[in-house]
Measured scan of single mutants.
Amino acid sequence: KKVLATKVLGTVKWFNVRNGYGFINRNDTKEDVFVHQTAIKKNNPRKYLRSVGDGETVEFDVVEGEKGAEAANVTGPDGVPVEGSR
């Protein structure tokens, strides 16, 4: 997949743990970017399912997906594990 941007910060708009996807709002362009649970690189080690929490700040790369921009290599800021869904 073509990389459109790297090390982008954003805020998780919503994430559905059961369906394994959601959207992140980019801090720079204010665009919403699709995020799938497989894109989460560093999950909260205390959680079994990969997820990001609503309102959580995350860092990610933006790649060209089949339906437009999507997140890849999702971590917390500066590469720490994500907090995950509460």
Rank of each mutant, 00 (worst) to 15 (best):
K1L: 05
K1D: 07
K1C: 01
K2P: 06
K2R: 10
K2T: 06
K2S: 03
K2I: 04
L4E: 05
A5Q: 07
T6I: 07
T6K: 14
T6Y: 09
T6V: 10
K7F: 01
K7M: 05
V8S: 03
V8G: 02
L9D: 07
L9K: 14
L9T: 15
G10N: 03
T11K: 10
T11P: 00
V12Q: 00
V12N: 01
V12A: 02
V12L: 07
K13N: 04
W14E: 07
W14T: 07
F15N: 06
F15P: 03
F15T: 04
V17I: 11
N19P: 04
N19G: 10
N19D: 12
G20N: 07
G20H: 15
G20K: 09
Y21D: 05
Y21H: 06
G22R: 02
G22S: 02
F23Y: 08
F23N: 05
F23G: 03
I24H: 01
I24C: 00
N25M: 11
N25I: 15
R26M: 03
R26Y: 01
D28N: 04
D28F: 01
D28S: 01
D28P: 00
K30E: 07
E31A: 05
D32V: 01
V33I: 12
F34D: 05
F34M: 04
V35L: 10
V35T: 04
T38W: 03
T38S: 15
T38A: 08
T38C: 07
A39T: 05
A39N: 05
A39I: 01
I40P: 02
I40K: 02
I40E: 04
I40N: 04
I40F: 14
K41D: 09
K42G: 15
N43A: 14
N43G: 14
N44G: 15
N44S: 11
N44T: 10
N44Q: 12
P45G: 14
R46F: 13
R46W: 10
K47H: 15
K47T: 13
L49V: 14
L49D: 10
R50H: 10
R50Q: 12
S51M: 10
S51T: 13
S51D: 10
S51L: 12
V52E: 06
D54L: 12
T57Q: 11
V58N: 00
F60W: 02
F60G: 03
D61M: 01
V62T: 00
V62C: 01
V62W: 00
V62G: 01
V63E: 04
V63K: 01
G65I: 01
E66L: 12
E66P: 14
K67M: 08
K67I: 04
K67T: 06
K67E: 07
K67A: 08
G68V: 02
A69K: 11
A71C: 08
A71S: 03
V74P: 00
V74W: 03
T75F: 02
G76L: 15
G76C: 15
P77E: 07
P77Q: 09
P77L: 14
G79N: 11
P81G: 14
V82R: 10
V82T: 11
E83A: 14
E83P: 11
G84E: 13
G84R: 11
G84V: 11
S85F: 10
S85D: 12
S85H: 15
R86Q: 12
R86L: 13
R86H: 15
R86A: 13
